[in-house]
Design a protein around this nucleic acid. Structure first.
Lengths: 137, 137
DNA sequence: TCTTGACCTTCCAGTGACTGGAAGGATTAG
DNA sequence: CTAATCCTTCCAGTCACTGGAAGGTCAAGA
């Protein structure tokens, strides 16, 4: 099948599929007219990539996951370790965002947000640490 | 002061400071020897940038925040709106990561993670939807 | 048969916000 | 005098695409 159909079936944009070929994640055949010709196992591979990317695995991790996937002797421990690391990264990112939020929220809460010029958010950015009233829940 | 000291005082790497000059966020003087010469208000600006970046504002948002900061007539509403949008982005990102986590966690939980080859994580990536036992809390 | 439009190809450049490194000049300490 | 440290500019690389230009191919309709 042509790249358009492979794109539809895998859910990946054609541009992305060509890019994945550039970096050797897929290797479709070529038809006589020069068009790429995808087999259903190519599409399978693309769907695998799509899912793994959606779970936040990097391209290099995807490459490794693919090689583990096609290696009938791999140990599930290898995959589990990668997934656990992903989970840790996710947790770290969530924690970071929550601390960001707890820094920004009180500033927003105590900025009156009208057409007067004084603004505790800018004051904070400028390093003028004014007392921030804790917002009532 | 030279860039090294400005870097120390602002907490930004010298590379970053030069980059900020490239994109016109700061404009230090030049000494006779060609070295950049930072005033304390330059450093103030850099610290402002550092704080805003740490809160996750983009470079363009920082540019806007700086211009609002130096505009004595700005309305605090403008700044508040930007900060509120940031908060929304943060919330959206947290939600996304949590949904990622809830997709990945059960796979990790039910992967035995030993040297046997069968692995529910890879099965899921491959589209083989095996039943995932809900982990006991 | 011609033409239109959808599809495909390659290649180049841009994204955001830096970061690394090379090559070379200036300054300072010993 | 020399070595180390600092500074300069400029170029390239990061990550994972994405946009666009220029042009070839194909299928359907008038």
């Amino acid at each position: 099948m042509n790249i358009g159909e492979a794109s539809e079936r895998s859910g990946l944009p054609a541009k992305t599929i060509r890019y994945y070929e550039d970096i050797a994640l897929v290797a479709p055949d070529r038809a006589d007219n020069g068009y790429r010709d995808y087999s259903s196992s190519d599409v399978h591979r693309l769907r695998f990539l799509s899912r793994a990317r959606n779970l936040g695995f990097s391209i290099d991790e995807c490459r490794l996951l693919l090689s583990l996937y096609t290696d009938r002797n791999r140990a599930s421990a290898d995959v589990k370790a990668m997934a656990e690391q992903r989970l840790e990264e996710i947790d770290a990112k969530i924690a970071e965002l929550q601390s960001l939020k707890s820094a920004l929220q009180p500033l927003v809460d105590c900025c009156h947000g009208d057409d007067r010029p004084d603004c505790p958010i800018l004051d904070d950015l400028a390093g003028l640490r004014t007392k921030v009233k804790h917002a009532q829940a």
